[in-house]
Design a protein around this nucleic acid. Structure first.
Lengths: 350, 350
DNA sequence: AATTATTGCTAGAACGTTCTTGCGAATAAT
DNA sequence: ATTATTCGCAAGAACGTTCTAGCAATAATT
């Protein structure tokens, strides 16, 4: 069925071991130019390509990098995955995905599955599911070739992270400078109950570093629209909130929608900053300001780290990227007031 | 280093072959209850898990399904990938991803890489890159265990598709019923030059089946906003277009944004239907009507097919799912007029 | 001219499985 | 009471590689 090294050997009339040495151009391969050519031609004619399983079995590498990801993760995770894929292929590696739900047991079994498939290294991409990776870390104290992306810090393992605390601080300061008086933080409820969630905590921390004791609200991921409406009529009015930094762009977008429907003048009455710089920012009536980072850089650094670990570097590698604030119309109060920009521009809507 | 079957064997004081038989509970394994327990306990204590490479080598299956995907593909592809991942794990399989750019050579090399990794079957997920899969099909005439998703039909291989022609026809008919007089199709430019692109052609075909000779426009993916603005001021005005079915939700969203900015009364003056039912539909000021399909069903059918092919079913399997039209505010002209719905609702915007 | 190094190759062993065959002992069928 | 059958296990071989060792023949060094 399968073309093996032995088939090539008989065709080239040499030992199969020599074929292995030549085709894998090993340092110990000592073959004359003629035999070399004979072998290569035979391989070409037979359409030989090596059996990776056999190679792995005798001690080789799989050239596989395992990625643990929650398939129900936010879109960001997948766009990061795409970048990881790109970076990995650039170095001759492939990505093996393992489902990693928010259950620590499943996460660990995903890890085992990856190891069974002889991946050379593992990347943990599960976002927003706190406690889990911590659990995993407990179990994985001995694992060296593991990189956490955007979810763990100050632990045993290597990681690549984005300083979202700073990102949210930047956004809050920006809203202050634009003249908003009462800025709140709007988070997705999904993560509410979990105190240890790094991604949530850093957002809160960054926000409170600028506005100690500032209001934090939550909307459920399931129906953010109605929740926003209720907030606008209720707590926002009550506490005179006039600007929001949102956990992600979609929450900001839903809020913008409801603010518009409630008759608010934007961005004068209410300022908005989202997070992630998704496409939705640019197609909203008032383009959304947002906190973002360079996904390509993060992915490349992650691959760089895992490759270093694979070749045996015995260190805890860490990198933290600085996020970036993209200022668009949704938070430019001063400009809007001075230029009466949006008032004129959108006046004719209905 | 690694815990092998032999380690378990010495600990349980049996032959390693018996360990293999018992742990893999083979039909030919005949062991007494006591030895069985001894073996299992030894395995547990040593933390044994099988070496897949060795299993594959002796003829076993990798329990891997390869997916060829363009990592720069639209988000839909990745959400489908997530569903595939789910469905595959439900059957004990894992997903191995291979980068598949729009270059036929690279696509083929991705295929080879998957085969090298001994995947049991292959799924082609590359969207919107026409001609490629056709090329691939040429090269892969002999490959049986291959399923195309949403990009090829009427060819040699098995496929799962969505009848987007019908979807776009439905959308067009719906807009007609709502009283729009001059409906256009708005496509993404990226695919314009390629005549053979199935996904584009079926959209056009569906649109023209209802409106023969209806206008088709294109916007570049890079800057849809400005393009929409130009269309509104130019050709839409000229040809008195008053409704659009868009290739995807984002194009529809950008158009809505620009229509609002241009002072159009929506949905009375202009009707909009998008495609894919992404989150953006629901956070736009006027929620977008959209054409969608059940990604979960498509993914599950795909996995069902590939599993059938893997177990040796020698047939060309095909499934075509019917899309679904989700009607939201952006196309409900009659309702808006009769209820003066949005006029009142959004009046206060500025 | 004798020793040593190098070249060009073959042979053996190992990686960790699974499957087939074999072989005594216990059990069942005739 | 004798032959068949099943049970409980072990031994051998194979899957396709790579790596080390070894052995001639030739080339380089003394």
């Amino acid at each position: 069925m399968e073309v093996t090294i032995r088939d090539v050997a008989v065709k080239a009339q040499v030992s199969f071991q020599l074929v292995s040495a030549v085709l894998g151009n090993k340092s110990y391969a000592r073959a004359s130019a003629v035999t070399r050519e004979k072998i290569e031609q035979a391989a070409r004619e037979l359409g030989y390509y090596p059996n990776i399983s056999a190679q792995i079995l005798q001690g080789g590498s799989s050239k596989l990098i395992g990625v643990m990801i929650d398939s129900r993760a936010p879109e960001e995770a997948f766009s990061l995955l795409a970048e990881l894929e790109q970076a990995a292929t650039a170095h001759g590696y492939r990505i093996l995905i393992a489902e990693a739900h928010d259950d620590p047991e499943k996460l660990f079994s995903a890890y085992c599955a990856l190891k069974q498939n002889r991946v050379d290294g593992v990347i943990s991409l599960s976002h927003d599911y706190p406690g889990i990776d911590y659990h995993l870390e407990e179990k994985l104290k001995t694992e060296k070739k593991l990189v956490f992306v955007q979810n763990i810090r100050e632990h045993l393992h290597s990681y690549v992270d984005v300083d979202m605390a700073e990102g949210f601080a930047m956004a809050t300061r920006h809203l202050q400078k634009e003249g908003y008086r009462n800025i709140a933080l709007l988070l997705s409820q999904r993560a509410r109950d979990i105190q240890k969630c790094q991604t949530i905590q850093s957002r809160i921390h960054g926000f409170h570093s600028v506005l100690p004791g500032g209001n934090v609200f939550y909307v459920p991921g399931a129906d953010p629209g109605t929740a926003c409406r209720q907030l606008i009529d209720g707590e926002f009015k009550e506490k005179q909130i006039d600007a929001v930094v949102a956990q992600n762009d979609y929450i900001a977008a839903f809020l913008q929608k409801e603010l518009l429907a409630a008759g608010k003048k934007l961005p004068e009455d209410f300022g908005l900053v989202g997070c992630d710089n998704r496409l939705v920012c640019q197609c909203m009536p008032l383009e959304l300001s947002t906190i973002t980072y360079d996904r390509k850089s993060v992915a490349e650094k992650t691959i760089e780290f895992i490759l270093k670990l694979i070749v045996g570097e015995d260190a805890r590698l860490a990198a933290v990227f600085q996020p970036q604030l993209i200022v668009r119309a949704s938070s430019q109060r001063k400009k809007a007031i001075s230029e009466k920009l949006n008032i004129n521009q959108i006046k004719g809507v209905l």
